[in-house]
Design a protein around this nucleic acid. Structure first.
Length: 820
RNA sequence: GUGGAUAUGCCGGAGUGGUCAAACGGGACGGACUCAAGAUCCGUUAGCUUAUGCUUACCUAGGUUCGAAUCCUAGUAUCCACACCA
């Protein structure tokens, strides 16, 4: 057996690709541009894992396919280096995040290079580089100018032992992830927000135009959550408190009002008499995170205040309720216990009166024995002059009435909230704001950007940035007086919200990017990454693109035309790969053993790349065998004339594989390629031309192998720079020509036999063929073969005799059949 | 609770009205080569059986059809996402 030195071959071609700069993207307008992008990596210290390898391989195959097809291709990579996990990992390792990250990215680059991906390394970017994050700061300033960035008090998860805010992901079972004996509190803090809600309407409406997986689009739709309803002003102590409802038809049934415990106006609602009770309730609440609250029983406490229902001037008590979402609507709801499940529960618990105001059409509600809320629609009762109206009509008329009275209006409400970007952490983009004693909150001028992260900080207690006095204390940009820097940093998702734009011009030091370049390459044509980003990164990026468009930098609306989610790779046995389970398969080890091309081939041949699958040692060995078999065949093949079979197979393979690559049906491509190769192998010979075409077809999947063998066939130019093979349509249809008559006879006679066995009598058989086949069948032959009177028609024939519409059933290879 | 996805032979997974007992890979089994192979190659892999026939088969139960893994209806199971949004 021939020993193949995969490593040597891989190095050889990787070097050559670099020397010839084949992956350096140029705006040449050769044919058309294609921007392929895989979601960039968070460079953890552990290095590249198999999921990365799969993600990048999927993109790489696509990029190489587009390159050989002659497109201007932009395919590059970078690092999402800033962020909390990196900071924590560094602290754990006793290193400074800056050094730690540098080491991690270096290691990542080494591994990525050994995998031979078709990246344009000259465009690589790193979000922890001040040259990158200065533009995060720049965008923030632009948003501030446009009124999209603002500060407000908001409730956050707080760990009293870490003395810092925690992200939702860091709250586990209501406790701090680092102190599982410490309950997370909800604390009110002043935070920076980005007004993503300004774009809620467009974000929702444009979803339908995207060529994205349906489930992702749906998730975004739910996340944005548009609902139509009415805003109604309840009066408390002479002040108006707007309340949002989708059921204004139930307004006469309001018997109390509930306010969220995190409502900023709460304090003014609580009376002296109730303060003690309210405080103890709030304290109890603190011990539960927002997420867990869902599972809890509805609880609340009376505030002591009353609200006036604008429709009938009734005074109803105001309660605090743990089930009211603070950030939806106004954080206050009108409660209609007879017609809302949650209000019903709450009223039962606290003995609050219920008023039935909707009568279901099919049955009567029994006031005394109401066992659950009736949440359906019906006809209004106990609603004064609105009695007798249907819910639908009443919604409209009541809203109209309130509108005229100036105490209500029709509104649209979104579920999506403004994006809180403040993090009390070190390893993120500093927010370019200075607090001045005189001037207040002052933005840092553009010319002073970037505000760099200082290296000298102490980790341990609270926000490390506050420990560097020299950095914190600064001059006010406005008056030159004493100022203090904002020490919160930006959420890591800020960095990833626009990086794909920067790739178009990553090395630009003067501006965020050249307009011409960004508009040439963007939007991303094909974006590949995990589905877990559906409601985070993928919404934020859409928001950023829309904003940057509106300030005149971009001439498109959406970040990515087509989106593809790769599946997860599980360890052998179906478990998730994890360090603690010790079942992690490291790509580098696999490379060592089987080479890059085998790994690539395996990763996409097991399952559709969008489905989860299990790692299998046997599987990779199978791929390895196939790759080796190809090498060995080319070692000593006989050049010869192609057989008819090979020509047919080759042409259909070219056609199908091209389509498969285009649609990410990589798995099917490997099947066809195996088929074709096995056929060539069986026959032992093929023409040089055919072998070259085969190599081109497999080159996106096994790039090193195909370059090597391509060269062996005597080619001087890279296979990447050759062209995608063409196929002959007539060679594909040919197979059907050969035996179409016979085939039809065989299948139709089977049916005739069955029918006659049943006792049916058949005198005539009408057959309807698709047009291109119609010319290929022979009536006489069919009649003879079937021993029946046969009538044949083309399905397009308007004169055809077809009383039962059987011609609709005709398909290539199979005619529609009607017996008489 | 709401929404979505999936259900195929020992396993992964194609197929999506006739050519389907169902591609391809893996596994298992048999054989060849060998001192021997975990290496390579060939074959078998629902059952009866060896006729180019039958029976049972693509989650379950019905239905449409001359014909269904494929279409329709109902159900079951699994997975995922969101989850008190008024």
């Amino acid at each position: 057996m021939v020993k193949i030195n995969f490593k040597k071959i891989e190095k050889k071609w990787q070097k050559k690709w670099e020397e010839e700069k084949v992956f350096v993207a140029k705006e040449e307008n050769k044919k058309d541009k294609h921007y392929v992008l895989e979601m960039f990596a968070y460079p953890s210290g552990a290095g590249l894992h198999m999921g990365h390898a799969l993600n990048y391989t999927i993109g790489d195959i696509f990029a190489r396919f587009k390159i050989i097809k002659g497109f201007d291709v932009l395919h590059t990579t970078g690092y999402d280096a800033l962020g909390l996990p990196a900071e924590n990992a560094a602290i754990k390792a006793g290193a400074h995040p800056m050094d730690y990250t540098k080491e991690s990215t270096k290691n990542f680059t080494k591994q990525l290079k050994s995998l031979g991906f078709s990246y344009d390394w000259s465009r690589m970017l790193d979000t922890s580089d001040p040259n990158y994050y200065r533009w995060d700061q720049w965008i923030f300033l632009k948003m501030l100018e446009s009124g999209l960035a603002y500060q407000k008090e908001s409730s956050v998860n707080w760990c009293s032992r870490c003395n810092t805010v925690l992200a939702n992901e860091q709250v586990q079972d209501g406790k701090c992830w680092r102190h599982d004996d410490t309950r997370v509190e909800i604390k009110s803090l002043k935070q920076w927000f980005l007004k993503i809600t300004n774009y809620a309407g467009e974000l929702l409406d444009k979803i339908d135009d995207l060529d994205w997986p349906e489930r992702t689009k749906l998730m975004q739709k739910h996340w944005i959550g548009k609902s139509y309803g009415t805003e109604i002003d309840f009066e408390v102590n002479g002040e108006k408190y707007p309340v949002f409802t989708t059921r204004p038809d139930t307004i006469f049934g309001v018997t109390f009002v509930v306010v969220s415990p995190y409502n900023q106006k709460l304090k003014s609602l609580v009376t002296k008499e109730q303060k003690k009770e309210v405080d103890s309730f709030l304290k109890k609440l603190k011990s539960v995170s927002e997420k867990d609250a869902v599972l809890l029983e509805k609880e609340g406490v009376f505030t002591g205040s009353y609200a006036i229902n604008p429709i009938n001037k009734e005074k109803v008590p105001i309660y605090i309720g743990n089930f009211v979402v603070a950030d939806y609507g106004s954080g206050m709801v009108m409660a209609v216990p007879a017609h809302d499940k949650r209000d019903f529960e709450f009223a039962n618990k606290y003995g609050i009166n219920k008023k039935i105001v909707i009568n279901p059409v099919e049955f009567e509600l029994d006031k005394k024995n109401l066992t659950e809320a009736y949440t359906g629609e019906g006809v209004l009762i106990n609603s004064k002059n609105f009695d007798g109206l249907t819910s639908e009509k009443a919604k409209h008329e009541i809203t109209e009435f309130l509108s005229k009275a100036g105490s209500g209006r029709k509104t649209v409400n979104f579920r999506i909230k403004d994006w809180g970007i403040s993090r009390q952490r070190y390893w993120g983009t500093p927010i370019p704001i200075v607090y001045c004693e005189k001037c207040g909150t002052v933005p840092v001028p553009e010319k002073d950007l970037p505000i760099k992260l200082p290296k000298e900080v102490k980790f341990g207690k609270g926000n490390p940035l506050t420990t560097n006095d020299k950095w914190v204390n600064t001059k006010c940009p406005k008056c030159g007086g004493k100022g203090k820097r904002e020490t919160d940093t930006m959420d890591t998702f800020v960095n990833s919200s626009w990086y794909f734009l920067r790739y178009a011009d990553s090395n630009n030091k003067k501006e965020i990017f050249e307009k011409k370049k960004v508009n040439y390459w963007n939007p991303v044509d094909t974006y590949i990454g995990g589905a877990e980003h559906a409601c985070m990164h993928l919404i934020y990026s859409r928001f950023y693109v829309k904003f940057l468009r509106d300030i005149g930098l971009l001439n498109f609306d959406e970040p990515a035309k087509k989106l593809f989610h790769q599946g997860m790779i599980h360890a052998e046995g179906g478990e998730k790969m994890s360090k603690s389970k010790g079942n992690v398969i490291n790509p580098s080890d696999i490379l060592e053993k089987y080479g890059v091309d085998s790994l690539r081939f395996f990763l996409i041949s097991v399952a559709s790349p969008d489905k989860d699958f299990e790692w299998s040692e046997k599987g990779i060995q199978g791929s390895f065998r196939f790759v080796k078999k190809i090498y060995e065949f080319f070692e000593n093949f006989k050049e010869g004339k192609d057989s008819e079979k090979i020509i047919l197979k080759l042409n259909s393979t070219i056609k199908n594989v091209g389509e498969y690559f285009e649609n990410f049906d990589y798995r099917k491509a490997t099947i066809e390629l195996r088929d074709l190769f096995e056929l060539i192998y069986e026959e032992g010979k093929a023409s040089r031309e055919t072998l070259e075409k085969f190599l081109k077809l497999i080159s996106p999947i096994c790039p090193h192998l195909s370059e090597e063998l391509w060269e062996k066939l005597g080619n001087k130019k890279l296979i990447l720079k050759s062209s995608w093979p063409e196929f002959k349509e007539n060679e594909i249809g040919k197979k059907i020509d050969f035996d179409l008559n016979e085939k039809v006879i065989k299948s139709v006679s089977k049916i005739i036999n069955k029918l006659e066995l049943r006792g049916d009598k058949i005198s005539k058989v009408h057959l309807y063929f698709v047009p291109f086949e119609f010319s290929k069948v022979n009536q006489a032959k069919l009649s003879k073969g079937l021993n029946k009177k046969i009538l044949i028609y083309s399905v397009q024939d308007k004169e055809k005799y077809d009383p039962e519409g059987k011609s609709k059933k005709a398909r290539p290879g199979i005619p529609g059949i009607w017996f008489e």
